[in-house]
């Protein structure tokens, strides 16, 4: 059976167009970032007064799932308060039990509501930039809007995010930690990093 050359051309052209359309739809379409499946770290830094001590703490890596759907992004990542570690058992107990009230509020949750350059993140498999983000941070049962900048890097099918923000603990109804004459200042720096797969849906 012999096909006319024009039919072959039309078939190839249609196929190619379909593939291109599919690829475009995928790039701009729905993507999932399962943060659970990746690696990462959580860090916080607070300063004590009047004694010039900087307290650098760590916590478990963030867990959760982020979804990119066209121009919008959603999803929540959480970090368990029980995993907070300031380097001293006494201080950990003080922080978690008295101030963070871990039994009542076991997780810190961050819901992402917008992220800059989303189109580039989804379209390019080799992208790296610092982009603004907005979200809602829930600590100690209080949810507040937060903004910051995140370094986002996509390499092939994985994405790395490093976000930093400064919060005022009083905004979250956390009593200012005071112990034996040392008071922690209201501002606490938080840094969250993760690398996770990025999958088209």
């Amino acid at each position: 059976m012999k096909f006319p050359s024009s039919a072959v051309f039309l078939f190839v052209a249609a196929g190619a167009s379909s593939l291109m359309l599919a690829a475009t739809a995928s790039a701009a379409g729905k993507w999932v970032i399962p943060v659970d499946e990746g690696t990462g770290s959580t860090e916080f830094v607070a300063v004590g007064n009047p004694t010039a001590i900087r307290i650098r703490g760590t916590a478990e890596r963030p867990k959760g799932k982020l979804t990119i759907d066209g121009a919008s992004v959603s999803g929540t990542i959480t970090v368990p308060v029980a995993s907070f570690d300031s380097g001293l058992a006494l201080r950990n107990q003080h922080m978690k039990q008295k101030y963070m009230e871990v039994d009542k509020y076991p997780d810190v949750a961050f819901s992402l509501t917008s992220l800059g350059s989303l189109d580039k993140v989804t379209e390019s498999k080799d992208f790296s930039s610092e982009v603004p983000f907005d979200g809602k941070l829930k600590i100690h049962g209080v949810e507040k809007g937060v903004q910051g900048k995140a370094k986002v890097a996509r390499k092939g099918d994985s994405v790395s995010v490093a976000a930093a923000m400064k919060i005022n603990i009083r905004d979250f109804n956390i009593e200012v930690p005071t112990f034996a004459g040392v008071t922690v200042t209201n501002d606490v720096d938080i840094k969250v990093e993760f690398t996770a797969p990025m999958r088209a849906q």
Binding site: G48, T51, A52, I53, I55, G87, L88, L90, A180, G181
Partner: peptide
């Protein structure tokens, strides 16, 4: 443990000598 400045635990800015309340707690902790 992150105590780079002596004054956190001592009355003397350069360290040594009588402990602050915080210094006493840290000595135990």
């Amino acid at each position: 443990h992150g105590y780079a400045a002596c004054v956190t635990c001592h009355v003397s800015p350069d360290g040594g000598g009588v402990l602050t309340w915080y210094g006493r707690e840290i000595s135990g902790a």
